[in-house]
Amino acid sequence: MSPRPGLPSRLHARDTPDPSAPPIQVVGLRKSFGHHEVLKGIDLTVERGEVVCVIGPSGSGKSTLLRSINLLEWPTAGQVRIEGIDVLDPDVNLDRVRTRIGMVFQSFNLFPPMTVLRNTTIAQEKVLGRSRSQAERVGRDMLERVGLQDKIDAHPSQLSGGQQQRVAIARSLAMNPDMMLFDEPTSALDPELVGEVLEVMRSLAESGMTMMVVTHEMGFAREVGTRLIFMDDGLIVEQGLPRQVLSDPQQPRTQLFLSKVL
């Protein structure tokens, strides 16, 4: 949609992604659940092509930060900009912004009554308005990309956890998102199934996708991540190159955490 001539372009500009703006920009983000403040002022900018891994103890606010970016959680204060769009602006069509942010959950959250292929096509049809055949072509491509082209007609319950998570990734990719959020994508998996999911995520990162990954997989963070963020108690405590942060943490809290998990 292009702005109609003669109309002030202000409204239009508010809703249109700016390709030169950073994909994710968070300023002074705070989030409280009742009296409990989970995020205590987060400032974060993710540039195009970055793979930002977020680590930290449970309850540190990692997941809440991720869920605040596509507004599954509504921030109590602060700003969230997606490709330059202020998503907290009530005039912004949030659903349209969300189509550009893929999200992968710890518990997969595939749609159980639908086949694998239907899982990847329903949002394409209902949200992007693609035809059935067009959506299925994209869905098949994405399922092939995650190595599940032969599971197209299966139902989620017939798949292993690792396969389900790969379908979930394909479902998000089918929307052609500009960035992907991963909320502990391998935490619910049996150890022997973690590798196949991380492999898909690695190839996605290599293709240049902007990614933000909340994870406990330090190996993935070290090898694939371009930046590592350590969060504790609702704040970003330390960030930098993954190798640097993991091998030479500067903050005592980071040191304490890493000494426990490494």
């Binding site: 659903d95 349209r96 999200m103 159980p112 949002a123 949200v127």
Partner: peptide
């Protein structure tokens, strides 16, 4: 509630989510 969250994060509006994802289940 993960079903709703998955649908909404794919950009489905509230009513679409209800009719196509939540209600059938």
């Amino acid at each position: 509630k993960g079903q709703r969250e998955a649908a909404r994060s794919l950009g489905m509006p509230h009513l679409t989510t209800m009719l196509h994802v939540i209600l059938p289940q």
